[in-house]
Each structure stands twice: as structure tokens, then as C-alpha cells.
Design a protein around this nucleic acid. Structure first.
Length: 304
DNA sequence: AAAAGGGACAACCGCGAAATT
DNA sequence: CAATTTCGCGGTTGTCCCTTT
């Protein structure tokens, strides 16, 4: 038996919502809460699918929704989070109060993604006309291409490692509780991201001279400051940090020995000292795994 | 001034996971 | 435990509006 439709399709209205429909939906939810979305339209007197009502409410009518253009800070957060969690729009949205996953997804697809593409294309198409191809542009292209496969690889590794982490915990009860609470790999990242540790990284990024606003330049290209933040995030999964017998080893999966921009010793040193300085021992496990390496490498690689 | 093209955003669709029966 | 239902997510499409020709 196939999956049952979420609602009877016949006679239900589709397409843009009218102000009257919005008002009915808002009134109903204010008085009764949404309850079961499936039964809501009938009870509220709307000729809409429950799914459509839910979407309209969560993406548009909800009172806590923040309207207006994204701030530079939000934009920066989206770029950094996307480099780490990929297209997990709901996860990203959870870090941006008042913004919906749909809104962020649209913003990414219509603005940020195109900027990325421009950056990549620019380096391959503008070489002839530019005064001389910079290491930055060729590096961007190479890492952009490398990015997706690296991310996918990291995803697989991450899920494996978070399982290992669970099994290594001595307090099995807390591990079970965490599992029961539905904590995902992403949740762990977000926990760290929102902790003092994450703040340390953001602070480090700012202190490295990347506190300029993320913005487009007059020629519509991304500013150097934004670019470095972005590229740092993009290259995050190209590195692996492991900890063996109290010795931290940084390995670059960038096999191009001719490139030297990632071999920024100072940046790596900054990463490592930060790693070693982290006091919360229960969080060290994360940093020795893929989540940590992502976070670790995300910020200090800013010199492009 | 009108048509074409493109960008931005809202809404829909299909799928998988979780919850319920 | 399996079948069914509901919900939420991410990808995609449709539509409106602005800009360019």
C-alpha cells in the first residue's frame, strides 16, 4: 500500500494565500493553537491542505518572524554554518532567531551561492584579462572544487566517529539519554558552536582582522575580508586533526604540494594552541573528531 | 512604451523520520 | 512488530516585479 495523501486533494485551494485566508489562519491558531495540522483547515474553515497551512504559518505568519534583509552578521553566520553543516537549512535557521529555513534557503540560493559561483568562475575566466592571476583566485577555484567531495567524505566520517564517541563514554546512562533526546552530530556541533569554545573561535576570527563587515564591493565581488572567512570555512573539511598520545597532528588533505597558502604555519599554530587550551575535557572528544576539525580549521586559515 | 529576461520570494512536492495505532 | 499517519525537511517550481533592451 502506498503512502496515503496528506489530505484529500480535490477541492482544495492552491497557490498564493489571500489576506482573508491569512486572517482566518492567524485567528484560529491564536485561539486554539495549531494542534493537528491535518484537521486544522477543516476546523478553521479553510479550503487548504494542512501542509499548506503549516507552511504558511511557519514561513510567513508566525508572529516571531523577523522580516527585512539579512544583516551582515546573519550573512556571516549562514556562510560559516553552511560550510559546516551543508544544506541543513533548519539547523542553520535554528541559529538565527526569527529567520525561517525557507528564507535562508532562498537567500543562499539567490545571493550567496551566486557569489560563490562568481568567485569560482572569475578565477577561470578572468585570467586573460587580469593583470596576472593571483594565487588567491586559483586557490579559490581548486578549493571550491575540492569542497563538495571533502564535505561528503567528512559527513561519512563524522557519523562514524560520533558513534564511537558514544560508545566510549563511561557514563552510558548519559549517552543513552543523549541518544533518546535525539541529539545528532549537528547538535553536537551546535552545542560547541554556542559554547565558550565557539565564541573563542569567533573572537579569534575577529582578532585576526576579519571584523570588517561582510559585504560586496562595488564590482559586486566579495570583499577580501568576506572572502577569507568564506574560504576558511570552505577549506575546513580539507584538513584533519588527530590527537595521538597527547600529540596533535594536523594533516592537510590538500595533496597539492605546490600550494603553500594552506601551509600557513602561524595559522596552524593558532589552531593548535587553541585546541590545547580548551579546558572542558568532555568536549575534547569532539575536537579530536571530525566536528572538532571542522570547527578548528574554520577560522584561522584566513590569509588568502 | 512594450517585450524579454532575470532575480527574488512564496508555495508546492516528494521523501524520510518519528509518532501512533 | 508491522502498518499507518503525521510532521518536517530540502529541492524545485511558479509567479510577481524590476531592469534592460
Amino acid at each position: 500500500m502506498g503512502r496515503a495523501p496528506c489530505c484529500e486533494k480535490q477541492g482544495l485551494k492552491k497557490g498564493p494565500w489571500t489576506p482573508e485566508e491569512d486572517e482566518i489562519l492567524i485567528d484560529y491558531i491564536k485561539k486554539n493553537g495549531h494542534g493537528s495540522w491535518r484537521s486544522l483547515p477543516k476546523q478553521a474553515g479553510l479550503s487548504r491542505c494542512g501542509k499548506s497551512c503549516r507552511l504558511r504559518w511557519t514561513n510567513y505568519l508566525r508572529p516571531d518572524i523577523k522580516r527585512g534583509p539579512f544583516t551582515l552578521e546573519e550573512e556571516k553566520t549562514i556562510i560559516q554554518l553552511h560550510a559546516i553543516v551543508g544544506n541543513r537549512w533548519s539547523t542553520i535557521a535554528s541559529q538565527l532567531p526569527g529567520r525561517t529555513d525557507n528564507e535562508i534557503k532562498n537567500f543562499w540560493n539567490t545571493h550567496l551561492k551566486k557569489r560563490l559561483e562568481r568567485m569560482g568562475q572569475g578565477s577561470t575566466t578572468s585570467n586573460a584579462s587580469s593583470a596576472g592571476p593571483t594565487a588567491t583566485s586559483s586557490t579559490s577555484t581548486r578549493h571550491m572544487a575540492q569542497w563538495e567531495s571533502a564535505r561528503l567524505e567528512a559527513e561519512a566520517r563524522l557519523s562514524k566517529e560520533s558513534l564511537l564517541f558514544f560508545s566510549s563514554q563511561t557514563d552510558s546512562a548519559s549517552a543513552q539519554a543523549a541518544a533518546a533526546a535525539g541529539r545528532s552530530d549537528t547538535d553536537y556541533f551546535l552545542r560547541i558552536w554556542n559554547s565558550d569554545v565557539g565564541e573563542s573561535f569567533r573572537r579569534l576570527g575577529r582578532s585576526c582582522g576579519r571584523d570588517e563587515p561582510t559585504c560586496l564591493q562595488s564590482d559586486n565581488s566579495i570583499s577580501p575580508a568576506s572572502s577569507s572567512t568564506l574560504m576558511a570555512a570552505v577549506t575546513a573539511t580539507a584538513l584533519t586533526i588527530t590527537s595521538e598520545q597527547n600529540e596533535v597532528v594536523v594533516k592537510s588533505s590538500d595533496d597539492s604540494s605546490s600550494s603553500n597558502e594552506l601551509e600557513d604555519e602561524e595559522s596552524h599554530e593558532t589552531s593548535l594552541s587553541l585546541l590545547l587550551d580548551f579546558p572542558p575535557s568532555d568536549e575534547m572528544g569532539f575536537f579530536q573528531g571530525q566536528i572538532g576539525s571542522r570547527l578548528m580549521c574554520g577560522l584561522p586559515l584566513g590569509q588568502f
